[in-house]
């Protein structure tokens, strides 16, 4: 874990509101594992005050750089979007628990919703496995990203968009479930918005498939001290609050306790 002033070496707008930011931060690039995130100081003043947690999208260990994908959703990310190549950005990380992999897994699915794509692309790069199917969902075709790179590494790539402008018209979870009729996965790794992950966790449970999901929650410190980002984790009807920043963001799919569903117990 490092607190580091990194120079921005690339910063590109990818579509209406998504950006790709690459920062020179050799110690972080060396240490980072898929599923971990950086806590990024977006501004220089007290307002907005907090850092912003952003998933690591990829690292280049040769030149010591770390790349993040982010969407402008508020004042913090809007300030970040204004930063130019050559400027410095203060990052804290790599933080959180990464995805874990067991060598016994032969067939793997990655299910990405929106910018949940970011950590799963990193995982795709680091997993040395032949039989890997990548599912990517987004609101529309303009938000489908990195398909060229994914196709080089994954055996298959399936796309879903809400408006049908690319691939399957519907959610990425529906698309994934459709494939379950033809494919058996040893494990499913997923990241994306909470409703998508909730739907996916229900399906994994129903189909008795192992899964790991990367959760998001409003975050304070990022290092496990403030207990602001806690979510319910447990089995059956027993749960405890665990920290997304330090105990997660990656949790076993079966351990995530969804308040509003009947899948617990």
């Amino acid at each position: 874990m490092h607190l580091y002033d990194g120079r921005i070496i690339d910063h590109k707008r990818l579509n209406a509101d998504c950006y790709r930011l690459t920062v020179a931060a050799p110690p972080i690039a060396q240490a980072a594992r898929p599923g971990q995130f950086l806590h990024v100081r977006c501004g220089a003043t007290y307002d907005p005050l907090l850092r912003r947690p952003i998933s690591i999208n990829t690292v280049n260990r040769k030149n010591g750089s770390v790349t993040m994908l982010y969407r402008v959703i508020g004042r913090g990310t809007a300030l970040l979007a204004q930063k130019k190549v050559g400027e410095q950005v203060n990052v804290l990380g790599p933080l959180g628990q990464p995805f874990t992999f067991d060598p016994s897994y032969r067939k793997v699915a990655l299910v990405a919703g929106g910018l949940g794509l970011a950590p799963l692309y990193f995982l795709l790069q680091e997993l040395n496995i032949d039989d890997l199917v990548f599912f990517q969902g987004a609101r529309s075709a303009s938000e489908i990203l990195l398909t060229h790179n994914i196709k080089q590494l994954a055996k298959e790539l399936y796309l879903a968009t809400d408006d049908g402008s690319a691939g399957f018209k519907g959610t990425v979870v529906e698309l994934f479930v459709n494939q379950l009729a033809f494919q058996n996965f040893d494990i499913v790794y997923a990241a994306g918005p909470q409703p998508m992950l909730r739907a996916l966790c229900l399906e994994l449970k129903r189909n008795h498939i192992k899964g790991q999901v990367s959760l998001e929650e409003r975050m304070g410190c990022g290092v496990g001290a403030c207990l602001c980002c806690n979510v319910k984790i447990g089995r059956g009807n027993s749960w405890v609050y665990k920290r997304v920043c330090a105990d997660g963001p990656v949790f076993d799919a079966e351990e995530v306790y969804w308040d509003d569903s009947a899948n617990n117990g």
């Binding site: 005050l49 907090l50 409003r218 975050m219 304070g220 602001c228 980002c229 405890v240 308040d259």
Partner: peptide
């Protein structure tokens, strides 16, 4: 103590509101 349900934190100008609830 379990503490309070999330969201437990809100950012406000120059500050944060927290309701961790003594977890």
């Amino acid at each position: 103590h379990h503490g309070n349900p999330p969201p437990r934190i809100a950012e406000t100008p120059g500050g944060i509101l927290n309701a961790v609830g003594l977890q």
